[in-house]
Simulated assay, not measured.
Amino acid sequence: MATAPQNPSLPLFYKDLIPLNSQQHATWKTRSTDKATWLVGVNSVPLTVEEFPQAQRHFPIIFTGGDNPIPLALMGMNEGVNVFVEDDGKVTNPIYMPAYARRYPFMLARLRPEAEELSLCVDPSSDLVGEDVEGEALFDGEQPSETTKNMLKFCENFEIAGSKTANFMAELKKHDLLMDGELNIDINGSQPFNYRGFQMVDETKLREVRGDVLRQWNQNGLLALIYAHLFSLELVRDIFGRQVQQGKGPQPVPAANA
């Protein structure tokens, strides 16, 4: 149900990663864009918990399968389908753009597996950065420019939000609240479409959580995040409807012909 990275050894969107430095990239620039070409055909994007309140207004929020699940914003019901982004990268509706997508082509990464510090890296294959790009300079002499400093701060905040997200997921697993998800969509009596391969909060188990735990979750904001996830699932039919309207993915089959 989720889109896999083109290169499993690199994060989603990234085709390559190199650390920025003033010696090799002294003349590099970066430009802004109104088209998110890296989102074309990507049906799910990682989210941090801080984004749940905004994201749940636009996308279903689900969790990946496996032992180390992460939250995802579902932007299409089938792999290779994004109902909010046209083939040229134009975003068709005013939507909340996940921070994971907004930071591209930059990100913080460890230069070596054993390294403790994270370095600001960039995808050199992106047309948003480079020596011949018309835009803002990445360096002012040997020092990072204000543009680079702002991007570094954005990426640092993203990493902090990622740690909070990991704590949230650990709490869900601690109380065994995650279950294998299944979504069944039956539109106008047509053959139902079934979607699996993700996780969601088990509402039955949520109702059985002890009162003192719920009180603590209410005080620290975790309970609101859980319900943002659950309420967002109502948008699944909307995403599917957009997909059908755009002629992407499965088309409903009349019940008589199913």
Rank of each mutant, 00 (worst) to 15 (best):
P8M: 03
P8Q: 01
P11W: 01
D16G: 07
P19R: 07
Q24D: 14
Q24C: 05
H25T: 06
H25K: 07
S32H: 10
S32L: 10
S32N: 12
T33G: 06
W38T: 04
L39N: 04
V40D: 06
V40K: 11
G41M: 00
V42W: 01
F52N: 07
Q56N: 11
R57M: 10
R57C: 00
I62D: 02
F63T: 03
F63N: 03
G66N: 12
N68F: 10
I70H: 07
P71Q: 06
L72P: 00
L72I: 13
G76T: 09
M77R: 10
M77T: 11
N82P: 04
V83D: 06
D87M: 10
V91C: 06
N93A: 13
I95F: 03
Y96C: 08
Y100G: 02
M107K: 13
A109D: 10
L111S: 09
R112I: 05
P113H: 11
E117F: 08
L118K: 14
V122D: 00
D132F: 03
V133C: 09
D140V: 02
D140K: 08
G141L: 06
E142S: 14
Q143I: 02
P144W: 00
P144F: 02
E146H: 04
T147A: 12
M151C: 05
M151W: 14
F154H: 09
F154Q: 11
E156D: 10
E159A: 15
I160Y: 07
L172W: 03
K173S: 05
N184R: 15
F193G: 11
F198W: 06
F198A: 06
M200N: 04
D202L: 00
L214Y: 01
N218G: 10
N220S: 11
A224K: 15
L225M: 12
I226P: 07
L230G: 03
V236R: 08
R237I: 12
I239K: 09
R242C: 03
V244S: 07
Q245M: 13
K248L: 15
G249S: 04
P250H: 05
P250Q: 12
Q251E: 02
Q251K: 15
P252N: 01
V253D: 00
P254I: 00
A256C: 02
A256G: 04
